[in-house]
């Protein structure tokens, strides 16, 4: 029971990170129908930007307040990552819009290879470890010498994710941009006819996706304290799994899918075999797509002749 509770806490934390990345996949898929393969690597780039920003703040400027440092790191990472994704969209995906369906996918795979190798070349292939940013935890239950703990960093991840999701929900549901975005999702030509700037909306979608991935990247760095250039692929695929599980195109689906994938992964590691935890996530992906292709909250795909 204690193990279960502890894994539940760990799973929700991991799931929040996956959920934030998954929103990026689901939004981009919803609006231009493309699997943004490079999104996992954008997340990894964000973690590296956060790492650099954190080092500047702590070792050069000597900021000792972790809360202030973390806040600034988060903002810096969001800004730079948004810029990166905006430029990627401009260069690699926009020229291919409306072209042959496989072209953006291949372009995105190329971009993914490019980004991870760019970080490898510019920052070196070794793991980058930083001293723990936040220490300490709450002990929730102690039973038979097994303490169930909720660490401060897990709490921060929960809090930041919740706040951002509320902001994000407000953005999509209540603002002009969100409306334009939903309009483009339904029918781009019609949206253009009623005065929505489709190109700009799509660009902003990529920017928002990157900003959320940047939050996930910063949280990842804070939680694990280590990042390497190859850390984009597996979280990326798992977040994509989460988006598919929740029903691709559905925003609440992405978050719930992320939490589910996080829980499945941690529970699998605790009760079965940690070596095969990735197999668990990938199997969920395959099983979902085969038996429930529209996911938990997605609209079924209608075949038209």
């Amino acid at each position: 029971m204690e193990v279960f509770l502890q894994q539940l806490i760990n799973g929700i934390t991991l799931g929040s990170i996956y959920g934030l990345i998954a929103i990026g996949y689901t939004m981009v898929f919803g609006i231009i129908g493309m699997v943004n393969f490079a999104h996992g690597d954008v997340f990894m780039v964000a973690a590296f930007v956060a790492l650099v920003a954190f080092l500047i703040l702590t070792t050069w400027l000597g900021i000792s307040s972790i809360a202030v440092a973390l806040f600034i790191v988060l903002i810096v990472a969001m800004l730079f990552t948004s810029l990166v994704n905006w430029i990627i969209e401009r260069l690699a995906y926009r020229p291919l819009r409306g072209s042959f369906r496989l072209a953006p996918l291949i372009s995105a795979i190329g971009m993914s290879i490019f980004l991870s190798n760019f970080v490898q070349v510019s920052q070196g292939p070794r793991n980058k470890a930083i001293p723990p940013m936040v220490q300490g935890d709450f002990v929730l239950v102690t039973h038979n010498d097994y303490a169930v703990t909720l660490s401060f960093k897990q709490l921060i991840i929960w809090g930041v994710t919740a706040v951002l999701l509320v902001c994000f929900w407000y953005l999509v549901a209540r603002t002009r941009l969100g409306r334009a975005q939903r309009a483009c999702e339904q029918d781009q030509r019609m949206a253009a006819l009623v005065g929505v700037n489709v190109d700009q909306t799509i660009s902003l979608t990529f920017v928002i996706a990157a900003a959320l991935a940047a939050v996930a990247g910063t949280m990842y760095l804070m939680y694990y304290g280590v990042v390497s250039f190859s850390d984009g692929f597996v979280p990326g695929v798992k977040a994509f799994t989460a988006a598919v599980l929740g029903g691709i195109g559905s925003l609440p689906g992405a978050v719930i899918g992320g939490l589910l994938i996080g829980l499945i992964e941690t529970m699998w590691s605790a009760y079965f075999s940690i070596d095969y935890k990735d197999v668990a996530a990938f199997s969920v992906l395959a099983i979902t797509l085969i038996f429930l292709p529209q996911g938990l909250f997605g609209r079924p795909d209608v075949e038209k002749v």
Partner: peptide, 12 residues
Amino acid sequence: LLFGFAMVIIMV
């Protein structure tokens, strides 16, 4: 690095 870049360029 160049391989990934070439993939994007050829596709574009």
